[in-house]
Design a protein around this nucleic acid. Structure first.
Lengths: 187, 187
DNA sequence: GTCTATAGCTTGATAGAC
DNA sequence: GTCTATCAAGCTATAGAC
């Protein structure tokens, strides 16, 4: 693996663990086993490297989500599969976490990968809800876009509850609660 | 208002805007119009002042939530009132935001106010769900604790979606989605 | 491409005058 | 109680040798 690659992966890890504000170029270099000059040769600076790392993480997350969302023979099963997908709640979401970072939100370049990821996720979830409604599986009155936003929010909020509690339990409870509410919305 | 008070309020604002890692003692002092020595006279350091500020914010949030949760003549109305309470989604939750901060999570003292706030909120929401079930308003099978966690998560996750999008719209959509799912779970 | 040296600034805290 | 001065360490970036 070359140096640029190691820098990106180290940045991905540190952004996940400590966020953008809490991650220094120096820490990235040390984890990657690279010197100062090496990093500034491959990237223009911290924002540039962070953007590359965030785009990478966003692409990986999307691939994982798509893999889960494609499986299941009913809308409820596919949405449930997304909600119950194996996660590590105490680590949080590597993309969603960035949305709480002031410097990320203040920069269009840095915010864009986060924005695109959630726009895609909401659309994808809404498609599945709409299919469930069309198939007569879910109630006719259920708004696909609103339901999708609620499902995505339960996962992101579950991370907050888990980290606040220092335990994965609230995350699992929120997922169970959401699955039960979806079950109640069957036609 | 005395200096200690101004320091706490300034710290509350900055922690909300920039998180713990992104907030420096110097920035707090400047916003409060106080010097270095003044801050270190009233507080032992950044963690001490941050803890005071977070406890204050937690108490305020709890009072606001309790005020909303006490109003309404049915469980659905009270839970809906909590979900639809007036908020500024782009600012995020001043308590929930702290859960994403690595230094807050690493310190028991700093994490405790966050933990206590969400433990209280989940209990309070679960009580209301349980009352709704007992009254025959909500389905008998609905688990109060899981449903409460899902509701709290929708709000916290809604903030993430809104900040990612740079717009309050996803927050409002998630709330509408959650309200609709709760309506579907009526007995 | 990678390294070391250096720069100028900020951080979080302490010292000591008033 | 509040102020200014000072500190060692860390931050982000640039320069220039190799």
């Amino acid at each position: 693996m070359d140096t640029a690659e190691r820098l990106i992966e180290s940045a991905q890890q540190l952004l996940w663990e400590r966020g953008y504000v809490g991650t220094s170029p120096k820490a990235i270099q040390q984890r990657a086993g690279a010197g100062q000059g090496s990093m500034y040769h491959h990237f223009r600076g911290k924002p540039d490297l962070a953007e590359a790392a965030m785009r990478r993480s966003a692409a990986q997350l999307r691939a994982q989500a798509e893999a889960v969302l494609a499986v299941g023979d009913s809308a409820t099963a596919r949405l449930g599969g997304y909600l119950e997908r194996e996660r590590d709640p105490l680590r949080g979401c590597r993309v969603g976490r960035m949305a709480m970072d002031p410097d990320v939100i203040a920069s269009d370049e840095l915010r864009r990968p986060v924005e695109e990821t959630f726009a895609w996720l909401r659309d994808r979830l809404a498609e599945i809800v709409a299919e469930g409604v069309a198939a007569g599986e879910l109630r006719a009155g259920l708004d696909p876009s609103d339901t999708a936003a609620a499902i995505a929010a339960v996962v992101q909020g579950g991370y907050v509850l888990a980290r606040a509690a220092g335990s994965r339990e609230p995350f699992d409870a929120a997922v169970r609660g959401a699955v039960a509410l979806l079950a109640a919305a069957r036609a």
